[in-house]
């Protein structure tokens, strides 16, 4: 469904991603993991077309989208749940979904909206609420719902769990597993590596903008030294602790 070959992108003289190759099929979750600054977000944003690439190719469902802008990629079935949600904060939940379904016909958009509300009933309860005034968890639900309005073949998710309570993380993870079963190809960038490996079918590990390992979650976990070197000294526990500490601090 999504084939990326030798993707390279730079910010000035800094190479953010270099010759990244990855492939994800329909009904599969690919976890893109690595430490801070590994090039995960740059890869996602370049795949969506927001970062200009200096080399490589991107194929979406057999169509070469390398030279197309984000709006054309959206029309071909690519959607993004960006880091930090980046909702249209001054607009209501309903209006955010309307923009999400901008490329769809009105009946298709209506159907997609009902589906988003069925997936996240809390959004339906708050459909007239301004997006910027909702909690982090509700905003993440809306970001996923907005992306689903595209009826995506490929869904790019950047930092699904960042700053969320464990209960909300569980709900979001359950949702993406459900979406995978419906046949959507998902690329999941996640700092919480343990959670990412739980749901992933395949894993690509990035370090300094390069792919240093690719395989199944079991293969990545089995290589303990590699896991500790490239992902975290204690298998992502430090990151998880940090996130949970942040959440607790906010709720107190």
């Amino acid at each position: 469904m999504l084939e990326i070959e030798d993707l390279t992108c730079t910010y000035g003289s800094v190479v953010a991603a270099s010759q990244v190759c990855l492939s994800v099929k329909a009904g599969e979750i690919l976890a893109l993991v690595g430490s801070n600054g590994a090039g995960k977000t740059s890869t996602i944003m370049a795949t969506m077309g927001h970062v200009r690439i200096t080399g490589g190719s991107i194929m979406l469902d057999g169509v070469d989208v390398t030279r197309l802008g984000p709006r054309h990629r959206a029309r071909l079935g690519m959607a993004v749940v960006p880091e930090g949600r980046r909702l249209f904060a001054d607009m209501t939940v309903d209006e955010n979904l309307t923009v999400g379904g901008y490329t769809r016909t009105k009946p298709a958009a209506r159907q997609a909206r009902e589906r988003a509300y069925a997936l996240f009933p809390r959004l339906a309860e708050r459909r007239r609420q301004i997006a910027g005034s909702m909690s982090g968890g509700e905003q993440q639900m809306l970001a996923i719902g907005r992306a689903l309005m595209v009826s995506p073949k490929v869904l790019l998710i950047d930092e699904l769990s960042l700053g969320l309570m464990p209960k909300i993380i569980d709900l979001c993870m359950e949702t993406i597993v459900r979406l995978k079963r419906e046949g959507i190809a998902i690329v999941l960038v996640e700092q919480n590596t343990d959670r990412a490996l739980e749901v992933a079918d395949a894993v690509v590990v990035l370090a300094s903008g390069r792919v240093v390992k690719a395989g199944t979650p079991e293969m990545i976990r089995a290589d303990d030294t590699f896991f500790q070197t490239y992902i975290g000294l204690d298998g992502g526990q430090a990151v998880r602790n940090q996130v949970e500490a942040n959440v607790e601090q906010r709720s107190s």
Binding site: H50, R71, A74, A79, L87, E95, V99
Partner: peptide, 23 residues
């Protein structure tokens, strides 16, 4: 209107608006 919503979205966050097909 839907165009009005897209227009407001572009005012607020042009990059994300393009992610959903808005020119």
């Amino acid at each position: 209107s839907r165009t009005g919503a897209a227009w407001r979205a572009t005012l607020g966050n042009p990059q994300m608006a393009t992610s959903f097909g808005v020119s």
